[in-house]
Write a protein that binds this DNA or RNA. Sequence first.
DNA 1: AAAATTAATGATATTGATTATCGATTTTTT
DNA 2: AAAAAATCGATAATCAATATCATTAATTTT
Lengths: 138, 138
Amino acid sequence: MTDTIEQKCLLKGVKLTDQRRLIAKVMSEASDHPDVDELYKRVSKIDPKISIATVYRTVKLFEESGILTKHEFKGGKARYEELNEGHHDHLIDVKSGEIIEFVDEEIEELQKKVAEKHGYTLVDHKLELYGVKKNLNK
Amino acid sequence: MTDTIEQKCLLKGVKLTDQRRLIAKVMSEASDHPDVDELYKRVSKIDPKISIATVYRTVKLFEESGILTKHEFKGGKARYEELNEGHHDHLIDVKSGEIIEFVDEEIEELQKKVAEKHGYTLVDHKLELYGVKKNLNK
DNA sequence: AAAATTAATGATATTGATTATCGATTTTTT
DNA sequence: AAAAAATCGATAATCAATATCATTAATTTT
């Protein structure tokens, strides 16, 4: 297991309040990619007083501190995920919405090469694959 | 040169009105990736009567007809581009906003493989590279 | 070709996600 | 403990995009 978000905040000097700590905890425990509404629902169960404005503010703060990443998948609202060393991309099931994480070193390498070829240093990238499940017993 | 948008509409049975024809022409002549506001500005110069609602409606219609593609680059509004056979991805200069188009067959192939490996058939994908220009005379 | 029906337009209201504001509360500094 | 600064909750404002609706244009029916 890797560091919790709370630990990362300590390391990066991001001040934690009760609300932030709660949001950190819920995001650390999430194994999916919740949007703000969903996250708000989850934290509200524990602290019904929390404001959605605080949730928005906090995910933004965490994102700017390099603790969360924001995904803007096709035609949906922004979704958030804990940012860990092991970067990955996403394969999205267009029927069910299920999200599968994957890493492909070869693709990563080729991306860098493409950028270099055009005279650029790659600083970020976004790769999303959209697919439909294959019928395996055909 | 490839077909104009107007020709594609004829082929695909998309009915053209004066407004749609104008939007088609402006998009066919565009070599960049304008958002709706920019497109509205350009068509307004020729037909000042046109409504922005019509521009929104038309790009949506063209997109659904497979004539335009919509790009949702990081944190900006939707941008549109004519869709031609030769698919390509985008390398975005994070400083200037300049957009460079590229194709990399090897990456395309690997994407399909990744999807297959997870039991999926790739139906779509999005690849965006974000980079900074290299100092060439170093 | 006029009447009737259907489709598209322009103007504007509405929506939905996100950000901004602002007074109240909490935390930190002095 | 008083003063200053930061954060919060509630809600207003913003911004892109869609929906509504009366008017105009195009198409079909007679």
